[in-house]
Design a protein around this nucleic acid. Sequence first.
DNA 1: AATTTTTGTTCCGTATTATAGAACAAGCAC
DNA 2: GTGCTTGTTCTATAATACGGAACAAAAATT
Lengths: 267, 267
Amino acid sequence: MTQMIRARIQSVARAAALLDAMASGEWVALRDLARRVGVAKTTAFNLVGALVDVGMAEHDATRGLYRLGLLHLVHGRAVERRMDMVELIRPFLVRLCAETRETVNLALPSTTDAIIVESMESNQTLRVSAYTGTRADYHATACGRALIAWRSAAFRQAIFDLGPLRLKTARTTTDLAALNALLDRCRSQGWASEFEENETGSACVAAPIFDAEGLPIASVNLAGPASRFRPQAMRELGALLVQWMAEISATLQRAAQTPKLRPAAGG
Amino acid sequence: MTQMIRARIQSVARAAALLDAMASGEWVALRDLARRVGVAKTTAFNLVGALVDVGMAEHDATRGLYRLGLLHLVHGRAVERRMDMVELIRPFLVRLCAETRETVNLALPSTTDAIIVESMESNQTLRVSAYTGTRADYHATACGRALIAWRSAAFRQAIFDLGPLRLKTARTTTDLAALNALLDRCRSQGWASEFEENETGSACVAAPIFDAEGLPIASVNLAGPASRFRPQAMRELGALLVQWMAEISATLQRAAQTPKLRPAAGG
DNA sequence: AATTTTTGTTCCGTATTATAGAACAAGCAC
DNA sequence: GTGCTTGTTCTATAATACGGAACAAAAATT
């Protein structure tokens, strides 16, 4: 059973959990849906049926399988279209990727985790591949940590209260006190990191982008194979990121002041 | 109040309606959400709050506004990644777009309407712009009509029963008998069309792609300004589409027989 | 081929859950 | 300053979603 999502309305929480269970994009059987979400098959049947009704799921009646519906394309595109901030940041990412020759990801904060909204792969043969549209745990990833390390203790706690910290690899920090100490260290050194805590064999270094109030609104990480991410290399990449993020933060705050002219639709 | 979506579970139907009300991607106030969905503001507050909890909506607490959440990126990308059929069809669309110099759209059927999953703009200065991830009414668009004209009367009726046919322009066909007659004519001539029924100033010609059982599984349309889409021009484009779609249908059915090798993840 | 097990689907009573009213606070317009 | 609109909290009620039981159909097993 997947970590149940909390929400004010049970049906919505469960519907979201069902979508999560179909997030691979592949066909899923009803019994698997029911098991993963942790509800009776009848309930899963009714809920996923409702998702089909609204277009958020598809049903192969002959095989009795379900998968994500095309409506998500509509909403996904709508979100993409409004992300002007990413447009501003992208040029920096391109240069950063070229300079470091590691995979670069841009993450934005969401309710329960961070979400990779732009990613560029290293051109080295041994590299970390990452897709845009991937979820990143706040506690187990460098980009997630960079987004919460600069926030208040109450803010952090609200996230931790969602459920027990998931153990993603044998090295994942799941102890709350240890994690908080780790986050405090991130803030004092200016960048966050993670070594085989999210995925065995890979490591990450990340730093936040700040808004005018000094709150992190996004984070950029460099991901690579554990073999290349020795302590000294990570320190260097971390310091490099901090410089770049300061530059990006300044650019964004400058752009926020200038009156934004809306691009003509259909251009 | 937006056309209410029907679903087995009320909360899911309403949650979907709320997402629909935010589909523009812009910030929306709670009172607008409540009005468009047709529920008490308290109910809208709870539902949209639940959507925020699961990451499907964002909340700007200072201004009290809501918009679509980043989670849709995740699901949207998941859907995109699995659309191997579109990969097969795309090359044809490119050539079709170059040959006709009109905007080309590929639509797939969803529960309540068709959804544009791929689109290519004409290179003419006067053209119809279309974004991937747009919804297309079954009754008012050529691509929608092409998807239901070849289906049984019962199938059509199930769609019409969702609610009254929406009047999109002054010319939209909303009479059921008239629409059914129109769809029958589409089937006998092999292609569907629409003239200023979906959007004033533009017109469309479409034809379906068939699976091995002879059921339409997708449709391709050509969209252009009403000024260029005179009756004679539409007949020519329609005939052209029918030829192309036969070729695409044959290609797809050939591909369905050959064992598909799964592409390695992360490539 | 016959039997057992699993799985998808329908039906329905019950109790949990979503719903909207009332009330309050905060913001904006006038 | 006053009146109106809007976002949010709380609570009672009734509608709604839930899951058990039962059935049919399909796999899996023998």
